[in-house]
């Protein structure tokens, strides 16, 4: 349905996006993950026709959208990171304005406004000015405004940043519903791995303007299929123990966590007895340990060397 072919954007000397190949099939929900400055927003701006690529192409159903963006604009709903609304207008007035300029037919517009307000749970507050809303409510109206013209593809750029849990859950449920019940294609970027895990069938991981990995959750987790993760709780912190574990042949990484340490080792290396010995040597007691399944967060860390919120 929608694909990018070697999509690149250079600002002066800096390459913000570097030859990205992505695709979205109809009805799919795709996540776009990456740390700050990875190039996610620039990619979204190019896909949504707001920014002209330096090179490469964006195709909708096989047709390039670069020269004539009107086709993609018709089928695209974009929820930007910012609250792209008029704060001085009410939720209803905002939606009416955007509905009109989306050229939603007059007789349908009123119905559509009520539908999207119902979707985002703000039907009762529609007459209130946006500036009086909480951050979460504003983000919900922000989503509603992108849905007025019934887009086939919805792009959401970190729609849950800085909001209360209630609004966050509401937004996630709304997006899930849109994808599952109406077959809307979703491209979702977020800092929250669990949101992407919950919502998306496939994930693209970006870093330094490039896609460093992509695939379904299981495909991405298989990247870490050669590793075991052990979470260990210790009686006290010990630098010599940390160094001793790092020096073990089967150990790939050791991280300090709030609970103790996290050891990533070669799959099937059975280092537990070595760990116990090492602890005894420095007179440290292992209070608790647990073998962990790798998460997408681990995959992200493995690929980019940093956490999502870095």
């Amino acid at each position: 349905m929608l694909e990018t072919i070697k999509l690149s954007k250079t600002f002066k000397e800096k390459k913000a996006v570097d030859e990205i190949d992505m695709y979205l099939d109809e009805g799919e929900s795709v996540g776009l993950l990456g740390p700050n400055g990875a190039g996610k927003s620039t990619t979204i701006s190019m896909i949504s026709s707001l920014l002209k690529p330096t090179s490469g192409d964006v195709k909708l159903n096989g047709k390039s959208t670069i020269k004539n963006p009107s086709e993609i604009r018709k089928v695209l709903g974009v929820v930007p990171q910012e609250i792209a609304l008029y704060e001085e207008l009410s939720a209803y007035e905002n939606l009416k304005f955007f509905g009109k300029i989306y050229k939603v037919k007059k007789e349908l517009l009123e119905i559509r406004i009520q539908e999207v307000l119902e979707m985002v749970g703000l039907k009762d507050r529609q007459k209130e000015l946006v500036k009086t809303f909480s951050g979460g409510m504003k983000r919900r109206v922000n989503i509603a405004a992108a849905l007025l013209h019934k887009p086939k593809i919805l792009i959401l750029d970190e729609p849950t940043v800085g909001i209360d849990p209630q609004s966050r859950n509401h937004i996630l449920e709304t997006v899930k519903k849109l994808n599952e019940e109406t077959g809307m294609t979703i491209l979702y970027t977020s800092h929250y791995m669990e949101e992407v895990e919950q919502l998306c069938n496939r994930v693209y991981i970006m870093d330094h303007g490039r896609v460093v990995a992509s695939g379904s959750k299981s495909e991405l987790l298989s990247i870490l299929s050669t590793e075991d993760t052990i979470q260990i709780q210790l009686s006290k912190k010990s630098y010599p123990l940390l160094e001793s574990i790092k020096g073990m042949e089967a150990v790939r990484r050791v991280e300090e966590t709030n609970e103790g340490i996290r050891v990533i080792s070669k799959k099937g290396s059975n280092i537990l007895s070595d760990l116990v010995h090492a602890a005894e040597k420095v007179d440290i007691q292992i209070i608790h340990f647990q073998m962990e399944d790798p998460s997408l967060e681990d995959v992200f860390l493995h690929l980019t060397g940093k956490t999502l919120r870095d």
């Binding site: 026709s49 707001l50 990171q81 910012e82 609250i83 008029y86 300029i101 989306y102 050229k103």
Partner: peptide, 18 residues
Amino acid sequence: KRERVFNRIILTGSHPFH
């Protein structure tokens, strides 16, 4: 422009003249 409302307007396909 700052709050990206202008971008949203552009995405509606409205003519700049309007």
